[in-house]
Amino acid sequence: MQIILNGIIIGGIYALIALGFNLIYSSVRFYHMLYGILAVLGVYFLRFFQMTFHWPFALMVFLASFLIGLIGMASWQWFYRPLAITKKASSLVMLVLSFGALIVVQNLIALVWKNNTYSISITETIKSGYQFFGLSITFNQLVILITTFISVILLELFLGRTKWGMAIRAIGDNPELTTTIGLKTNQIILIVFFIGSFMSSISASLIALEIGVRPTYGLMLVMKAIIASIIGGIGSIRGAMFGGLLLGITENMGIYFFGAQWQEVTAFTLLTIFLLFRPQGLFQKYQLAK
């Protein structure tokens, strides 16, 4: 049970990171690889705030994520959009472009903050764990669980109950149609990039609480988002959530049975199984071939 609980905790973070990734993918239909490194950059901003200002932790996470949200918006407006919309670049071109940008930002981060692993702690005094029904959970893990839970609920409410949330779902469903009903699609995509990037930074901050973050983790994070998205069904918000959870639990089982060095192997084995037997994922929306 403890392995499953640990899996749910890490899976919750994967779910969160996959949710943001999927939200952006649904709207622009290309793999936004830069997403992973923006998440990592959020942790470096958070660490900078922690060392400089000593404000409440939640406020600093919010501010760092807000900044990442703005950078995410800028990345669409001035980096992707000129190619994707004006030049009508293919999704493959956008993927390569985005991957290149990830490498550049990753190296810039290493240049400024060095290539070390940084972990974040809320307070040095609260490190001890809690016991529930024979299961143990640390304070950081509790924060991760609660943050993930609240974020998913807020996102679900936003997408399901608000006018702008509905517009985001509409763009993901049928972008051509949204233009004909008078929606300013670029405005909606900017909102999507803000929310997605904001969520990526929150999830990377949660990872920093648990295992720490280094510049090269950007690629790892976006890969996890992609795997969780494919498992859940690319383009599906609910799928991303369940895909993330399943990935987290499977990885933890892998670590328990085969050792920590098998974590990535377990993740990619799960991906391969899905690609072979259920390529459309748990919650089918778009076939991978499309």
Partner: peptide
């Protein structure tokens, strides 16, 4: 071609028609 938002309910499709 694809004339509706297929992942949305009829009510939501109609609401999208009056987005402005």
């Amino acid at each position: 071609g694809k004339r509706v938002f297929s992942s949305m309910t009829i009510e939501e499709n109609l609401r999208m028609g009056a987005f402005l």
